[in-house]
Design a protein around this nucleic acid. Sequence first.
DNA 1: TCGCACGATGTGTACGCACACGAATATAAG
DNA 2: CTTATATTCGTGTGCGTACACATCGTGCGA
Lengths: 357, 357
Amino acid sequence: MTTIKDIAKEANVSTGTVDRVLHDRGGVSQETSDKIKGILRKKNFKINQIASSLAMKKHLNLATLIPMYDNQNVFWKSPASGIQKASQEVNANGVEITNFFFDQFDPKNYIDTFNKLLDSNPDALIMAPIFVKETSLIIKSLNERDIPFIFLNINQKGYNNLCYIGQKSFEGGSLAGQLLNLCTTQDDELLIVQTRKNLDDYRSFSQRGKGFIDYFNKNNIKKSIHQIQFDGLKNESNVGKKINSLLKSNKKIKGIVVPSSRTSNIIELIHPDIQAIIKVVGFDTTPKNISALKKGQITFLISQKSFNQGYKSIITMVNYLIHKVKPDPEIPTPLEIVTKENVEFIEYDMRRYDSGL
Amino acid sequence: MTTIKDIAKEANVSTGTVDRVLHDRGGVSQETSDKIKGILRKKNFKINQIASSLAMKKHLNLATLIPMYDNQNVFWKSPASGIQKASQEVNANGVEITNFFFDQFDPKNYIDTFNKLLDSNPDALIMAPIFVKETSLIIKSLNERDIPFIFLNINQKGYNNLCYIGQKSFEGGSLAGQLLNLCTTQDDELLIVQTRKNLDDYRSFSQRGKGFIDYFNKNNIKKSIHQIQFDGLKNESNVGKKINSLLKSNKKIKGIVVPSSRTSNIIELIHPDIQAIIKVVGFDTTPKNISALKKGQITFLISQKSFNQGYKSIITMVNYLIHKVKPDPEIPTPLEIVTKENVEFIEYDMRRYDSGL
DNA sequence: TCGCACGATGTGTACGCACACGAATATAAG
DNA sequence: CTTATATTCGTGTGCGTACACATCGTGCGA
């Protein structure tokens, strides 16, 4: 392995000079610089990241701003775990991460939490920009302070975020379309169940619905696609009544897609007789969804690997801050298809990422 | 962040003594040891992996023994790339990796290559134990020299391999069963196409076939499942004739599974009219398979993420040798379902690696 | 012509943290 | 008091980073 010392010796300069060239820190004559660069190439020199990390010992202070999770809304637990894992790994690099959780149904709390976060003087921020107007204020604040930020799981256009890490919701919807189309027959009809009303257009719920319909359009497949929308699932018995009556009056509906992570909540309300003959595609591998999948109530789950999203967001930011690696502006996470038969093997990936050697 | 120095100061000992305690290297009195351990716990001390790696700078020499790949047999390119990637990452740890490729159809070459490998005095080995008898000889050799080894992609029981990293072939077959069952109707019949004869029972081809059939048994689904077997695909026109005549005389066959990575080779031989009405499940995301998937010739591909297998094998071994982390005896890689609609988003990491380097 | 200032360029080295080995010290045994 | 044994100390090592300092050459004023 070639070290900086080797390079320095061959170029008849000191290691300090080589270091300047490596990091473009200036103060080196063109001639010397060229000579060193040549030797670097010739010897195929690569910075030893281990030694580099040790030497830098940057004290970085990252903050995250994502929704809090509870038993009712468990989705965000998964990215939070990914963040947690990454956090442990980069800890040795002198990177500290503080999580700030907000109420995903309360814009004011979003702002308040952000202000608390600002007080901690973070060097960078990983955030889920849930509310449109409030996000605009937040970004303004960030830009004034020159704090770089990454959008996680939810994207909003028009900002100077370092990158977006998350799913392609529209494409996820198309995938759901393909799957339901494959496991139903030509004459069968389909149903989209939205669990929220007043969907902001940019939200995944909305995009998935559009992508779903688009699948049939782009492939010239004639399909009757019904839609039903609820304003949350607080009133379960009411929701159940409506769905069941719809399904009873439309016997040709043989496939349902729920473009949110609340898939199992919906399915459980459906009459068992109908459950038995209907194919269901849902999103996200929450524990309840997985349990429904295993019971056969859900046919396919499409996972966005939100654990990985959280994990990657940290790694990407650290790479940017420490190693100046500019990420792609969009880092899509895979659309992972999960069924009863492969569900046992998917979780494994959570343990995967490199052990921080 | 607490360092060894902090601990040492508080315990009134030198850092060397703390280090001994940390690594159970002995030579420390019970009393001192207890005191230090107490402080370690109290301060929640964690070894700084960065500094640790730098200090150790073990010079490890890993070897790999896997089949060579070419245009005809491209499968092993993927694990090799994973190994390559991991190789670069651990390079900074002073770990050197040498690859030894053998002819997967020639047992003698397997042994010869292994002997060459032995001459390089490796500290550990990652291998694909393709041939039964020859593997037994190889393992004997390894054990005499106390060289730890990992089985990659192919498992053989009864050896003291550190672990097995690879797919669950049987379960992969079951998954194929589920998918074909979902996208065909009750009366449709199915076909298994084996591309090799004389299958060793432990090989993935064979296990997948069994798992496929088992899916229908365990779920009490009555299905006519046909099987056809070829001795390699050298004589393509002959293979094509046989398949087409089989499909023409059995019009009820609406689904085909090819339990090997040669899926696209088979499908291309099938008459276009039949292709159009038949669902196909295949294995492995080779470039040709992916291209067939995009053209609609293949409905589902089941990937074993062989890139990750290769990658993991190295990381696992290095963790074992340097950090003494004993891996699980079986590390299954996910059964990833790939369709036309999500193929763009799979293995983001790998594509990046392939193109970026 | 001398002296000095200053920018440009380059040197030398302390530092980050854990590791491990030779040397020193303490303690016990003979 | 010597030898042996058990503990513990002190420090060089791994490699890159970055800052304080040294060196050189040029230009300018007197």
